[in-house]
Design a protein around this nucleic acid. Structure first.
Length: 498
RNA sequence: GCACCGCUAGCUCAAUUGGCAGAGCAACUGACUCUUAAUCAGUAGGUUCGGGGUUCGAUUCCCUGGCGGUGUACCA
């Protein structure tokens, strides 16, 4: 295919419809008019059935024609809007000659406006008896088959617009996604959190351990990174005196893609001055409880084969405690050698895993994570794994950090934020040292962030929640692509550049 | 990145051992005044993902490339 050649598909059917366009235009009908005055949404008609039947009032609805069943002088069909679908009935003798002509040129997939009164058919179905109609937008490409719909996953992701038209459950997932974000936003606002926006294009990336996307600013002639997290900016705001802040942040990580990773994804981060991680744990439990009640209607949810009960309080287990539960060994004093042996005994492949911290992390994700089905807070992580968390107030070598796990995956990450600028510098430098030893995704030192800390940051509790995974959990979706409207795809053949 | 599976009409899917590429829906023509996966009669629709090979003959077997799915690796 040549570049910039328009994509023509739909074959004969598309040509038929283009033919209909000119027939309509010749008859003085604009197939793409400018507006339509609706009186009701379909859902209003369905729920107000009795009133409409009694009053005989005329209504005007608009939407997409989903089916047409012709019977010579009459026709039945279905029309669907944002709120629902309803049957319509049209009879040649009851509309103008012009309208009947337009109707005969109507195809499934067209957008139309209908005027009419409601009645019930012999089989008891609420139906709009059309008195007038207007074509509002002619569609040229045919919709997928009415019974099986659109099944092909590739087409569903690439043409999400078609997926949304024909697969109602997809629409439902994304409505729920919106409700989830609303619910969280309301919860945070009620607790006096301020919603802010921080840079997506950053001269220095940080706040997480991941490889960034790199871009270039022409005028400034400098490298910029797409953010991998907004953490360091939000904490600068805490320094500035905004005591409670949050941001729904689109983050970007230049790494592999799979069922739970998309290169761009949504993370909620929030920070509260004068809180520690214990305060944040209670806050998270309450947030999830409320979210479930508002969105699912219950704190008991179904995810795949699991029945999950999110009623607080959730189980709390320390990082080392959880490992000890699985291995029978307290690993706090374990040497690298002992950890390696333990991994080998459990058939864990250690390729690419170097250092004590990485070993512990590997053991944890192999042995413990898969078993964390019911909501569980894992708390008190080794300091090496957490360069932005504050050291534990009583336990040597640990930080005050927690991660809630549900259905075997991590759904959030939180800590008592490190606000000691000297310690923070040391941790950054340690990360840089580890980077030179081979880990290529550790933090560069952010001097300005340390400077901010030197002005003084109050004790602060911070939280990050992966919104996409949360939506997966609450919509029982097995792939992140099913909760992102336009998931990342390779370009179709002949499009895009290398 | 690696492994396995898939790609056939607009959509959903068939095609026996390698032997004329098919069905349903959608479309088109006609019939039909309460149907609803409407029905009935007829018509048309194909680069079998691309390229190469084996063969008298390839949707089918082999090689290669593309895209997707699943798993795995990477990803606090």
């Amino acid at each position: 295919m040549k570049e910039n050649e328009p994509v023509h598909e739909g074959g004969r059917e598309r040509e038929n419809r283009i033919e209909k366009l000119s027939t309509l235009r010749e008859a003085g009908v604009n197939p793409y008019p400018y507006r339509f005055q609706r009186t009701h949404g379909v859902a209003e008609l369905l729920s107000g059935e009795d009133t409409f039947l009694e009053s005989g009032a005329e209504t005007a609805i608009a939407g997409r024609i989903m089916s047409i069943r012709g019977h010579g002088h009459t026709s039945f069909g279905n029309i669907k809007d944002d709120t629902g679908a309803i049957q319509f009935y049209i009879k040649d003798a009851e509309v103008s000659e012009e309208d009947w002509k337009v109707f005969r040129l109507l195809d499934v997939g067209d957008i139309a406006g209908l005027w009419g009164v409601l009645f019930k058919t012999r089989t008891g179905e609420l139906t709009v008896k059309v008195s007038r109609l207007e074509l509002l937008s002619k569609s040229l490409l045919p919709l997928p088959e009415k019974y099986h719909g659109l099944q092909d996953k590739e087409l569903r992701y690439r043409r999400r617009y078609v997926d949304l038209i024909v697969n109602d459950e997809v629409m439902a997932v994304f409505r729920k996604r919106s409700m989830i974000i609303d619910s969280i936003r309301n919860y945070l606002r009620e607790h006096n959190f301020l919603e802010v926006e921080t840079p997506i294009l950053q001269p220095l990336y940080g706040g997480a351990s991941a490889r960034p996307f790199v871009t270039h600013h022409n005028t400034l002639d400098m490298k910029l990174y797409l953010r991998i997290a907004d953490e360091l900016y939000l904490k600068r705001l805490i320094v500035g005196g905004m005591e409670r802040v949050f941001e729904f942040s689109k983050d970007f990580r230049n790494e592999g893609m799979d069922r739970s990773h998309n290169p761009e994804f949504t993370m909620l981060e929030c920070y509260a001055a004068y809180w520690d991680y214990n305060d944040m744990m209670g806050f998270v439990e309450e947030m999830y409880q409320r979210l479930c009640e508002e969105v699912v209607g219950s704190t008991e949810i179904l995810y795949g084969e699991y029945e999950i009960d999110l009623t607080p309080p959730w189980r709390r287990l320390t990082f080392y405690g959880a490992l000890e539960e699985k291995t029978g060994v307290d690993l706090r004093g374990a040497t690298e050698k002992e950890l390696e042996k333990l991994a080998k005994d459990n058939d864990i492949d250690l390729e690419g895993v170097a250092g004590k911290a990485a070993l512990l992390d590997e053991l944890f994700s192999r042995l413990v994570e898969p078993g964390l089905i019911q909501p569980t807070f894992i708390i008190d992580y080794p300091v090496e794994l957490s360069p932005l968390a504050k050291v534990h107030r009583s336990e040597e070598g640990l930080v005050e950090r927690f991660e809630p796990y549900i259905a075997g995956f991590e759904v959030a990450n939180a800590f008592s934020e490190l606000n000691d600028p000297v310690d923070q510098r040391a941790r950054f430098e340690e990360q840089v040292r580890m980077r030179t030893e081979g880990a290529d995704d550790m933090h560069p030192v952010d001097e300005d962030y340390i400077r901010a800390l030197e002005y003084g940051m109050p004790p602060t509790g911070g939280l990050g929640v992966g919104i996409d995974r949360l939506v997966m959990l609450l919509t029982n979706s097995s792939s992140i692509r099913d909760v992102i409207l336009f998931p990342q795809m390779r370009p179709e053949a002949g499009r895009g550049e290398k």
